[in-house]
Amino acid sequence: MNLKPILIAAALGLSAALAGCTSMGPAHIFSSDYGSVKDAGYQLPSIPISKVPRQYHRQIVSFETKEKPGTIIVDTREKFLYFVMEDGKAMRYGIGVGREGFEWAGTARIAMKREWPTWTPPRAMIGRQPELAKWAGGMPPGTSNPLGARALYLFNKGGDTGYRLHGTPEWNSIGKAMSSGCIRLINQDIIDLYNRAEVGAKVIVKR
């Protein structure tokens, strides 16, 4: 009996099976979701996602925590935001965080959600950057607005923390410490998170 054709067929079958397995991996990395998006009359530009390190692309990862699904956990050291899901999984997003002197940590809750929010620079920020005084009454929504396409407003027992989870037009700041303390995500990612997160959700920010 000539075993060569059988062995070749088996090898091809194994190769196809392995190819099927590996093709499942990238299905959990949403690198193709950063194209141009029309949203509420605004045209978000596409993101050159190949220039963003792969670990900061939106993806589903294994994530063990005692926190219930729907909780948001922010790891400012690793520059990741996790939206806790069922079955030991989380949706992970790359983030930009507060620069030196503007870091923060703690527990809060989402008190409000806003699409295409108005941005009002805090008085202290205007003091540091007087050119922002023209926006003291609020900067209108738009693709150049620092809060981007969505904002989640964080409150604790003392009220408004002043911190937000929000979008940003500055995609190249993801994975870096450049903000004034808020947690920023690529606009396409904050839209995804906004659609998942609920008002009242617990947010844990770790340093």
Results as ranks from 00 to 15, higher is better:
residue 75 D to C: 03
residue 202 K to G: 08
residue 97 V to H: 00
residue 170 E to C: 01
residue 148 G to F: 09
residue 128 R to Q: 15
residue 103 E to C: 08
residue 83 F to N: 06
residue 200 G to D: 07
residue 44 L to S: 01
residue 120 T to N: 10
residue 168 T to G: 10
residue 206 K to N: 13
residue 140 P to N: 02
residue 92 R to G: 09
residue 189 D to A: 01
residue 87 D to V: 06
residue 166 H to A: 00
residue 145 N to G: 04
residue 25 G to M: 15
residue 125 M to A: 12
residue 40 A to L: 12
residue 82 Y to D: 00
residue 75 D to H: 00
residue 70 G to E: 08
residue 200 G to I: 07
residue 164 R to K: 14
residue 136 A to W: 00
residue 116 W to I: 10
residue 156 N to E: 00
residue 168 T to F: 07
residue 189 D to F: 00
residue 188 Q to F: 09
residue 38 K to T: 14
residue 202 K to Y: 09
residue 32 S to T: 14
residue 148 G to V: 03
residue 176 K to M: 14
residue 204 I to F: 02
residue 101 G to S: 01
residue 51 K to Y: 13
residue 33 D to C: 10
residue 194 Y to G: 01
residue 203 V to Y: 01
residue 73 I to R: 08
residue 117 P to F: 08
residue 69 P to A: 10
residue 158 G to M: 13
residue 148 G to Q: 02
residue 19 A to K: 08
residue 45 P to G: 01
residue 131 E to Y: 07
residue 3 L to P: 00
residue 97 V to F: 04
residue 88 G to F: 05
residue 93 Y to N: 06
residue 18 L to H: 02
residue 38 K to G: 11
residue 193 L to M: 01
residue 121 P to C: 10
residue 95 I to F: 04
residue 197 A to L: 05
residue 76 T to R: 11
residue 55 Q to P: 08
residue 162 G to F: 04
residue 167 G to V: 08
